[in-house]
Simulated scan of single mutants.
Amino acid sequence: MNNKTQDKYQKTQQNAASAPRPLPPKSSPDWKPQACGLSREELREIVAQIMG
């Protein structure tokens, strides 16, 4: 590649890396979490196994 092409490539790579990411969709105001049937202790055990 010549320098002109390299410069153009680097600029597009920099712009793509610094581009703002789209925000996730917002939940409705009346959204509430659903119970999963596990106790807090069971959830803690699962997280502890995953985290190590």
Rank of each mutant, 00 (worst) to 15 (best):
43 L>V: 15
8 K>I: 00
35 A>S: 05
18 S>R: 10
16 A>E: 07
11 K>R: 13
43 L>M: 13
19 A>F: 07
42 E>R: 05
43 L>F: 11
30 D>V: 02
50 I>T: 09
51 M>E: 15
1 M>Y: 01
19 A>Q: 11
44 R>Y: 10
12 T>K: 06
36 C>R: 09
48 A>R: 15
36 C>M: 10
29 P>Y: 02
25 P>N: 05
50 I>F: 11
1 M>H: 06
5 T>D: 11
33 P>L: 06
1 M>T: 10
24 P>I: 09
5 T>L: 10
26 K>I: 00
46 I>V: 08
18 S>V: 11
46 I>S: 06
27 S>Q: 11
17 A>Q: 09
42 E>Y: 02
24 P>T: 09
7 D>K: 13
32 K>S: 06
9 Y>G: 04
29 P>K: 00
44 R>M: 12
11 K>W: 02
3 N>H: 12
11 K>L: 04
3 N>K: 13
39 S>F: 08
37 G>N: 01
25 P>M: 05
10 Q>I: 08
25 P>K: 05
32 K>T: 03
29 P>A: 08
45 E>L: 15
28 S>I: 04
19 A>M: 08
50 I>H: 11
51 M>W: 10
17 A>D: 06
3 N>A: 12
34 Q>K: 14
22 P>V: 03
51 M>N: 15
18 S>W: 07
2 N>W: 07
7 D>I: 10
25 P>F: 05
44 R>Q: 12
19 A>N: 09
46 I>N: 06
42 E>K: 04
4 K>E: 13
5 T>I: 11
20 P>Q: 10
43 L>Q: 12
33 P>C: 04
12 T>V: 05
32 K>V: 01
39 S>E: 06
39 S>L: 08
45 E>S: 13
46 I>C: 05
52 G>T: 10
42 E>S: 01
21 R>P: 00
29 P>V: 01
26 K>E: 02
37 G>S: 02
27 S>W: 04
15 N>S: 14
17 A>C: 06
46 I>R: 13
23 L>F: 05
12 T>A: 06
38 L>S: 03
31 W>F: 07
21 R>A: 11
6 Q>H: 07
19 A>P: 05
24 P>F: 05
20 P>M: 03
35 A>C: 07
21 R>H: 08
6 Q>I: 14
38 L>G: 00
20 P>D: 09
17 A>L: 03
44 R>I: 12
15 N>F: 03
29 P>G: 02
16 A>M: 04
22 P>A: 07
39 S>G: 07
51 M>A: 15
36 C>T: 15
46 I>E: 09
41 E>G: 12
31 W>R: 00
38 L>N: 01
20 P>E: 09
47 V>L: 15
3 N>R: 14
32 K>W: 00
25 P>R: 05
43 L>G: 12
